[in-house]
Nucleic acid binder design. Structure first.
Lengths: 226, 226
DNA sequence: CGTCTATTTGAGTTAGCTCAACCGTCGTGG
DNA sequence: CCACGACGGTTGAGCTAACTCAAATAGACG
């Protein structure tokens, strides 16, 4: 659910959950077009969704219109867990998305659910909590440059491909999404990306493609040992 | 685990979890003195702890010394969930704390655990995620005044006692803890509290006691509809 | 009574914000 | 085929909320 989930989630366990869901819920696959919602805050939570392909963003709105992106969901991630039968965030497809719908009765305990799924969901939720704690460090403790650098490092680790001596990946989301994820403004995202480009740390072939030339330097900026 | 947990958690369910744990783990009660750690980040996660009395703070440190308080744990809350057998945060007692230790084999699925506990833990984790999402709104979207006001409203709702026509509660944590919880500085916490006091919205009989005189006004500041 | 720690208050600085202009791309319709 | 408008992104200039640094105050404790 969070950009760093897969990297933090022990591989064998991730395969277990993936395998369980793939084997039991292949019939429940759906396609969502880019920009379309999976669900809205307050909707009855009928399903948990596992992202199979594409990227989603989940977010919450404040009464005065300010928005916080809670996570970007990449393949393997789950969205839509609820403790009270109602979704607590918005969720939209950023790109075209394929997902697997896991019906409520597979996990809410009222039916004799598969205990393996149950256990894996608890483990996934605990991992999700750990990922969210990392995000707290971003929002609460880091400067704008550290936030952007951390974000790029996380995406490079999760989705980057080695191309010659650069690590390249796509940014399917808009600048505004990145801004609302990191708690800064669009302008700050843009300025900081430009700064990193001018420092020779990244290349930006186009606004939605990033190539990291100096990963160690980017990591240093992300962790800023001062 | 988070200051607002109990208020968001449906009462009957909370009683279920509470009841389950109380009946099965009364023998595992421990006392921790104020200021002493329950566990450190990286320790082997042998137990989940349920707070019975007192308040704990769980936090994470960045390499450069900056700290983020993740949550304040009040009676009924759980701390120490882990997906990989290792704690991912620091946890210390703020006041003298009584807690109930729930051993790993009650919930990690390797033994035939009580499925009721299992289900309640998953529900608790899902609720915890929803609470953390609210905290993201604080850290990412709110101004200093909105943060302090939200924090005071949450504590008033969770631990406040009506005294004449004020709602009074204790702040067992230091200003520095509040600052690191909200992502502001100590000075900003102090100044903002003074501002609320001078505006006649709260009284501060001493630095660790708050009496809210005008709860609606405080709520307005917390939500700032602009 | 002196020391230590927590909190409050003041004064000046700055990181990141707001507001505004500008640019490039893309889809639509004349 | 080109003009136009909409949208997303970048850049500049000035402002301000919150920060840093510093000092004063107040309890707590030996």
């Amino acid at each position: 659910m969070y950009v760093t989930s897969a990297s933090n989630f022990p591989l064998s366990e991730a395969l277990t959950l993936d395998g369980l869901l793939a084997s039991q819920f292949t019939n429940n696959e759906r396609l969502i077009k880019a920009g379309k919602p999976l669900f809205h805050e307050g909707d009855t939570a009928e399903y948990i969704y596992q992202i199979v392909e594409g990227v989603v963003r989940s977010s919450k709105l404040l009464a005065n219109g300010r928005r916080q992106i809670l996570s970007f969901g990449y393949p393997g991630d789950l969205v839509g867990m609820s403790h009270d039968g109602v979704y607590h965030s918005e969720c939209e497809a950023i790109s075209e998305v394929k997902l697997r719908a896991i019906p409520k009765n597979a996990y809410n305990g009222s039916l004799p659910a598969d205990p393996a799924i149950f256990g894996e969901l608890l483990r996934y939720a605990s991992n999700e909590i750990a990922n969210m704690q990392e995000h707290f460090m971003m929002l609460g403790c880091k400067t704008a440059t550290e936030k952007i650098a951390s974000f790029l490092v996380a995406l490079a680790e999760r989705t980057g491909q080695q191309v010659e001596n650069e690590i390249c990946f796509l940014l399917p989301m808009k600048r505004a999404d990145i801004a609302d994820f990191l708690g800064v403004t669009i302008e700050t995202v843009s300025r900081t990306m430009t700064k990193l480009r001018k420092a020779g740390i990244i290349n930006l072939p186009d606004p939605h493609s990033v190539c990291v030339c100096k990963l160690p330097a980017l990591r240093n900026l992300a962790e800023n040992q001062e």
